[in-house]
C-alpha cells in the first residue's frame, strides 16, 4: 500500500480517449489534449492520498447508521406511460424510438 499504487497516475491522451469511449463522450483532439493536462493536475493532487497507510481501515459504505432498508413488496400504480413518453425526444405511442444500433 502506498505511493506505488499511484505510479502512472498522470493520464495521457491515449488514456483520455479510452476513458471517453467508456463514458460515451466524444472529444475533439484539442479537447482530449486539454483534458489530459487538466486531469493530470487534478490526479496529481489526488495522488497525495496514497501517502496514507490505510490497509486495515474499512471503507465507508454509508455515513449514518442505516442498513438494509426494506419496504413491503406491494403493487402500486406506475407512472402513466404517455406522461413518461411525453418527455422523450422521439417516441411513438408505446415506446422510445432510437436510431439503429448499426452493424
Amino acid at each position: 500500500m502506498g505511493r506505488t499504487l499511484f505510479c502512472g497516475a498522470v493520464i495521457d491522451r491515449e488514456q483520455v480517449n479510452h476513458v471517453a469511449r467508456l463514458a460515451r463522450l466524444r472529444l475533439t483532439d484539442e479537447q482530449a489534449e486539454q483534458m489530459a493536462a487538466e486531469l493530470s493536475k487534478v490526479l496529481d493532487h489526488i495522488e497525495k492520498m496514497g501517502e496514507l497507510d490505510l490497509a486495515d481501515v474499512a471503507p465507508t459504505s454509508h455515513v449514518v447508521e442505516l442498513e438494509n432498508v426494506l419496504r413491503e413488496d406491494e403493487a402500486r400504480p406506475s407512472w402513466p406511460r404517455d406522461r413518461m413518453l411525453a418527455e422523450a425526444p422521439d417516441a411513438d405511442a408505446e415506446g422510445f424510438r432510437v436510431p439503429s444500433p448499426g452493424s
Binding site: L5, F6, V19, L25, L27, L39, M49, P59, S61
Partner: peptide, 30 residues
C-alpha cells in the same frame, strides 16, 4: 461536467479502482 465524468470513469475503471475509489472510501472513514 465532462471533466468530472472523465475523472470518475477513470477512477472506477479496471486497474485503478482500489487505488482511487477504494482508498478514497477509506480516507472518508478516517
Amino acid at each position: 461536467v465532462k471533466r468530472r465524468i472523465m475523472l470518475g470513469t477513470y477512477a472506477l475503471s479496471s486497474g485503478y479502482y482500489d487505488a482511487y475509489y477504494g482508498q478514497a472510501q477509506k480516507v472518508r472513514t478516517k
